[in-house]
Design a protein around this nucleic acid. Structure first.
Length: 518
RNA sequence: GUGGGUUUAGCUCAGUUGGUUAGAGCGCCGCUCUGUGGAAGCGGAGGCCGUGGGUUCAAGUCCCAUAAUCCACCCCA
């Protein structure tokens, strides 16, 4: 049977260590980026909103715009039971959020309302570097204000998120697409300008002349650029109406005051119809042809286009995959997940159930796994090291007979016996000790908790000379000072005094400790 | 939608002017090894050579088609 592949242009997000893993397909890294961004946005007062992955096609058609490439050729339709449902997989997050805002009466929440979301978006394009049919975005939207300060704040926040994620070398390209009448007039101006020279335009640009003349200006065709150099068209930015101009200048004023770096780019053309006035993109130099990490803008007219009351708003989105690509290019490390705390290995089949149970309860304190089949100690240690665990616990016949487990601290090499009933307490206590050294933890426990001390029956350990000395001295002093009456207390100092420390890290030294029966 | 590259083991790749049973390293599993740090040695599993046609006595190798994948264009995150 031939293997069935994933749909074209999609990718699987994979666990660490997967053979074919790439920067953007690391599940942990994907989650890291959305977690970091989400935490920052929530600190800025944004609240999480989640909308369905599919919407009425009308939401997208009216919001994004019927003349855009997204609506014309990149929509995934949703069918059910063979019938077209009139739905499409969402190609972007803003229109659905505005739809949800209107439908759920969010207008009554304090205004302006800051929202954020994250999740997959779908566009039926041919795949290439940084462009996928299902990709992931983090969205931030501010609804209910036309104050330029929220435009500027949104940009500043976006820049902060990239910085927090460790992405350097970002450039904010800031422009304004003006009010609708500004853009209409400008498009007419461009058409008049290029119409006489239509024969010299590239095929792509001939098409652009009717659909979206502004796109001609950033054509990659040399012929087009030569023509543009001759005609020297004015920039839209220089033909803004009074209000749009004042708004743009005010946004710049805030950014300047806050020291947020940006480049004014008269050529900024956003691909979605709903943008008004402020528009920006954030680019990164080293991620191939798709250098835009994200973009945003003001969309004061969108709510009305969806049938709601006028609701001025501004927002942005960035592509998680492109940010991951940028992070990868810059060598930014994604922090490791939670380090495994404990790996429990039974040395014999009959102790596997106990090993599993110890792992279960240890999970209150961290990541804990167990070996499902018996392990030799050396193999168990190797596996624990591979998993990156701090401690490995052994349960063999010696341990089981006396009711303890052997805990080896893989960072320090120290191994200590721990009564089974004290294991969870010990794991919890490691948090209060900076070193996490198992010897320190056990010592602390013995010195502070006499019930555990009374329960201790045997000690077996592999320690250095220094640790033996320290352990013995501390124990003796404490017992003396507190006048503890312990089983075998009278003999307590002696085992330490007469102790022969392990000859090497791998040597095993046994001695009796606090066991009146021995 | 357009153009170019790639496709041989789980992964990275060899594979001679077409010629017998398609290889290596890594990874995985086992043993050496009945209780202590990622070792080593030995062994094992794992392949419709992307798929379908064609040329030939003979195809991993040559031709055609197709698919997947990567990159670029359009456009966008």
């Amino acid at each position: 049977m031939a293997l069935v592949n994933r749909p074209q242009g999609t990718f699987d997000q994979l666990p660490e260590g997967s053979p074919k893993i790439e920067a953007h397909t690391r599940a942990r890294a994907q989650r890291y980026v959305t977690d970091v961004a989400g935490a920052m946005l929530e600190r800025a007062g944004a609240q999480l909103i989640v909308t369905p992955l599919f919407e009425e096609a009308e939401v997208v058609r009216r919001g994004v715009g019927g003349s855009t490439d997204i609506v014309r050729k990149e929509m995934f339709s949703v069918f059910y039971q063979g019938e077209h449902g009139g739905y499409v997989l969402r190609p972007e997050g803003t229109a659905p959020i505005v739809r949800a805002y209107l439908q759920n009466g969010l207008k009554q929440l304090p205004s302006p309302l800051r929202l954020w979301t994250h999740g997959p978006m779908f566009r039926a394009e041919r795949q290439q570097q940084g462009r996928y049919r299902q990709f992931h975005q983090v969205d931030y939207e501010v609804l209910g204000s036309e104050d330029p300060v929220v435009d500027a704040e949104a940009i500043a926040l976006m820049v902060d998120v990239y910085a927090r994620l460790g992405v350097r070398g970002t450039r904010v390209k800031l422009g304004s697409v003006g009010d609708p009448e500004d853009r209409e007039a400008y498009n007419a101006y461009l058409r008049d300008l290029f119409e006489p020279h239509v024969a010299r335009l590239s095929d792509d640009s001939k098409d652009r002349l009717t659909r979206n003349p502004m796109r001609i200006l950033d054509s990659k065709s040399e012929g087009d650029q030569a023509l543009i150099a001759e005609l020297r068209p004015e920039a839209l930015l220089d033909r803004l109406g009074v209000e749009a101009r004042a708004h743009f200048d005010a946004v710049r004023g805030f950014l300047d005051a806050w020291g947020v770096p940006y480049d004014v780019d008269p050529g900024i053309v956003r691909g979605l119809d709903y943008y008004r006035r402020t528009a920006w993109e954030v680019h990164h130099e080293h991620i191939g042809a798709k250098s835009a990490l994200g973009g945003g803008g003001r969309y004061d007219g969108l709510a009305e286009m969806l049938g709601g009351p006028r609701t001025p708003a501004v927002g942005w989105a960035f592509g998680v995959e492109r940010v991951l690509l940028a992070m990868h290019q810059e060598g930014v490390e994604v922090p490791d997940g939670e380090r495994p705390l404990l790996y429990v290995a039974a040395l014999d089949e009959q102790f596997v159930a106990l090993a599993a149970r110890l792992a279960f309860t240890a999970r209150a304190n961290g990541v804990a796994e167990y070996a499902i089949t018996p392990r030799k100690p050396g193999k168990a240690i190797g596996e624990a090291l591979k998993k990156g665990a701090r401690y490995v616990a052994f349960i063999g016949s010696d341990e089981a007979a006396r009711g303890y487990v052997s805990i080896k601290d893989l960072d320090t090499g120290t191994q200590m016996p721990v009564p089974v009933e004290a294991l969870d307490d010990i794991l919890a206590r490691r948090l209060s000790l900076r070193s996490g050294n198992i010897a320190d933890i056990v010592l602390e426990l013995l010195l502070t908790d006499t019930t555990v001390l009374n329960g201790a029956r045997l000690a077996q350990t592999v320690v250095s000379d220094a640790e033996v000395t320290r352990f013995a001295r501390a124990f003796t002093n404490k017992a003396f000072l507190q006048g503890l009456t312990l089983p075998g207390a009278a003999r307590a100092p002696e085992p330490f005094a007469g102790l022969t420390p392990g000859r090497s890290k791998s040597a095993v030294t046994l001695w009796n400790f606090l066991d009146p029966t021995l």
